[in-house]
Design a binder for these strands. Structure first.
Lengths: 171, 171
DNA sequence: GCCCGTGTTGCAAATAGATTGCAACTAGGT
DNA sequence: ACCTAGTTGCAATCTATTTGCAACACGGGC
């Protein structure tokens, strides 16, 4: 039951990368949904434009599947001209998250994952309990700006929701 | 934004214990909703009835708020006749979870929490972003045994959902 | 009530992800 | 070109969790 449970500390490398769908960034096309280039994104966030940062953002812009720091590090390091420390990845991701550039996803396996935040597309994921494949889900079943409990009212409510199941291949 | 982010490794001790509501176990009363005593629960799960195990289950039966391994360990150790290693807590919780006796909750702060599983009461929590108080929510907004994606169908779908907000005291 | 085997536990050591301190470096405004 | 605040790399550290192994105890059988 819940095979995902305790596999922190077990080597699960780039397993999650396999199913990310390719989706090359298209610098400055004129459609309404422009894929900002990482430099612009960084400048808009008042961050210095550095190689590690652009590399991370480029990766996240190119592939959807939320990635762990390790995975991002591996991918960035694999990129020809760039090599940076894992620590830098952690720091960049933390900063990006604080600034709302990326979202963190927690699939309950001990590794935190990140994906680019698309301002108008709030969504969730479903993770295969067996092969750990990840798919984004098109819409969110939860709507709740304010949650009222019997006696209490919480404000400014956000939520974190993940689905787990068995994908077609693993059934 | 999202103050919960990185406070793993910061001492947040028993903060979560404060708001758990007291609710003493009532051994063998004859109402339909009997509060099984921990021994029965364990025997039913074909586990040996040991002191650490009953202590853990008793604690979880007495107080709702999901607790971390540390918190459970602290509470158990504080109990007069009992003292056990943190490792034992981990092992017990892992086993209990595998057997479906308890649920794990992940509030995204790096610590995993557990609560007793009440077979017929599926629920979620809302956590205050500021003081970290936890309240259980009465009903679940998500219903989804099977999730269909454009081309894929996942089976046996479960979900993990947590809400975050600002509680009345912190607004 | 005692014995024994298997499941449990304790202790110490190991792992792994994440964080921190600090000195070296660099983007980008002047 | 220069300067400085913001970044990065490296090494050390931290914390939650896991693992190995020997000692122990629950509970079924006698």
């Amino acid at each position: 039951m819940e095979a995902l449970r305790q596999n922190r500390y077990k080597n699960n490398e780039t397993r999650f990368m396999a199913h990310a769908k390719a989706n090359s960034a298209h610098p400055k096309c004129e459609s309404k949904h422009v894929h900002e280039d990482s430099g612009d994104l960084l400048r808009a966030a008042k961050l210095k434009v550095t190689r590690p940062r652009t590399a991370i953002l480029d990766l996240l812009a190119a592939k959807h599947g939320p990635f762990t720091s390790e995975e991002i590090h591996a991918a960035v390091t694999r990129t020809p001209g760039i090599a940076c420390d894992l620590v830098t990845i952690y720091r960049c991701l933390a900063k990006f998250e604080d600034l709302g550039l990326i979202n963190r996803c927690d699939f309950g396996d001990g590794a935190v994952r990140y994906e680019l935040r698309h301002k108008d597309h709030h969504h969730h994921h479903i993770i295969c309990r067996s092969c750990r494949r990840v798919e984004p889900l098109p819409n969110c079943p939860v709507e709740s700006e304010t949650i009222r409990l019997p006696k209490l009212a919480f404000k400014d409510v956000t939520h974190r929701l993940e689905f787990f199941g068995l994908c077609p291949d693993c059934q």
